[in-house]
């Protein structure tokens, strides 16, 4: 029995993992398409610095950092605006990703079909990216790759201190 225990645990985990269903995206509106000008205007209007996270539903690392971004968006909601910039994706897959990993997070998501907005802001074609923007819409810093908790907290603090 002892020897079978690891096999039973793995089997149970597999059964649990296979039991999931596709996220229900019925009734969820499409993500608005945003040009660079729209994005900058939105940040200026909000009068708060912004963390723009560039993600895609086909990006595995984006899934890894989603819980952190979700928590951070809630934690810093009164000091920083969190924006999700979905790139080179389909509306349905993007909505499915949001329902599955970013539901209830105070993050405003926009759609960048060809990645041109990211390129305008100085980003690359790789995802994830996190762009830190001042309240006047200028880019403060770009973090390439998965962001960790300490780096996110530090860069948000830099934005807040710069705006104080």
């Amino acid at each position: 029995m002892t020897r079978l225990l690891p096999l039973l645990v793995v089997a149970a985990l597999l059964i649990v993992s296979c039991g999931g269903t596709s996220p229900d995206i019925a009734g969820i509106p499409d993500l608005p398409e945003a040009t660079t000008a729209d994005l900058v205007a939105s940040i200026e209007a909000g009068q708060l610095p912004a963390v723009v996270n560039v993600w895609a539903s086909w990006c595995g690392p984006c899934r890894s950092e989603a819980p952190l971004l979700s928590a951070a968006a809630g934690e810093f909601a009164d000091r920083v605006t969190f924006i999700g910039l979905n790139v080179r994706d389909s509306q349905n897959r993007a909505k499915g990703f949001i329902v599955e990993f970013l539901d209830d997070a105070p993050i405003e998501h926009v759609f960048d079909r060809d990645g041109s907005t990211v390129a305008d802001l100085g980003g690359t074609s790789g995802v994830p990216l996190t762009i830190f923007m001042n309240a006047d819409g200028t880019v403060s810093k770009i973090h390439f790759g998965v962001i960790d908790e300490r780096t996110l907290a530090l860069e948000v603090d830099e934005l807040v201190q710069a705006g104080a």
């Binding site: 597999l14 649990v16 690392p61 890894s64 952190l68 790759g145």
Partner: peptide, 22 residues
């Protein structure tokens, strides 16, 4: 860290290597 964040390691095997994720 993955389980705590709601990510199933069995269905997201590649994510295990993303140490920066936590």
């Amino acid at each position: 860290a993955m389980v705590g964040a709601g990510i199933n390691p069995l269905t997201s095997l590649g994510d295990i290597l993303i140490i920066r994720g936590g």
